[in-house]
Design a binder for these strands. Structure first.
Lengths: 162, 162
DNA sequence: CCAAATGGTACTAAATTGGTTCTAATTGGC
DNA sequence: GCCAATTAGAACCAATTTAGTACCATTTGG
């Protein structure tokens, strides 16, 4: 349906939240609380982001996550790549070769690849730094960074001291 | 997963096939045969395309479908709109308003809307006419216009006289 | 009036996704 | 050295979405 998955959506939320204070370290719990999302879900997202090198994890007690790079150096495309498992491409055949009998000389495939390319560039051009450039006052520490709090069960609010 | 649905994919195939001879009238059966797709599936697609005014149907015996407009005047965005039911937008919240508590002043939403906009423009810029501009000889009538014949059960080949 | 088409609805099965759970591994602090 | 906090990873279940099919109604040319 030409949508990113919810997990990817959460990924942009999480990353954006972290980008407000790029040097800080956040625990999964803290982020989940701030964004009104479930802790396991946020954990899952963070694990994937870690595996793809977008965030760095610190294990053990007092552990957490921190951005691996500056917000200027992380794009939406990076996040999408980390959280969508399938290779990028708007159609199956434009993402993966060898699916189709007529592939050679298939104009449609070529065109979809072109379109996918444009889309990809759009995603590559938006950096995390752009996402936090605020137009409204937002000074509170760990303020819910404009999260979408949808269909999530109310959470145990146990705000960690920070 | 940032893909168009298969139905939409089929839609581009069907429309592209029809665009080779924009004045002709095609039956669902004929198109399905030419593209190695199931007849019911192609029918479903054609019905949706009809409902959205992209093709015109002729009912009754000797009926069929024909493009409503010239291939130069039909874009991929048109086809996507006809076959994806949800409103356009890469995230739920960027497509539909009122989902989120923090909506006002949500930078992330704004940014996703911007990204969606870029994607949409990309789809609007590719016209059906671009899809058939061939770079290889393709002169046979009703030649399978570079279809993807994937995971479809073999069909009863009953080529209609045309 | 019959055959060949499209129109519409509804259903079923399969694939995907979302979210949770459980267990293991790591590490700081008492 | 042990306990608590925290991440790692796999597996699992439920819900949603999608794909494809089936069925019946309607239209129309011969």
């Amino acid at each position: 349906m030409l949508r990113i998955s919810k997990l990817t959506d959460y990924g942009t939320l999480v990353m954006t939240h972290m980008a407000v204070f790029p040097d800080r370290q956040y625990s999964a719990n803290e982020i989940a609380t701030a964004l009104s999302l479930g802790v396991p879900t946020v954990s899952k997202v963070l694990k994937a982001l870690t595996r793809h090198g977008l965030v760095t994890s610190i294990r053990g007690s007092r552990g957490g996550y921190a951005l691996s790079r500056l917000p200027e150096q992380i794009t939406i495309a990076d996040i999408v790549d980390a959280l969508e498992d399938q290779p990028f491409g708007l159609t199956e055949c434009s993402a993966t070769a060898g699916l189709c009998n007529y592939e050679d000389g298939c104009l449609i495939r070529t065109n979809w690849q072109r379109i996918s390319q444009i889309v990809r560039h759009a995603l590559e051009e938006v950096r995390l730094a752009d996402m936090v450039r605020r137009n409204m006052p937002n000074r509170k520490i760990a303020a819910p960074l404009q999260a979408r709090a949808i269909k999530q069960p109310p959470m145990v609010v146990k705000r960690p001291a920070q």
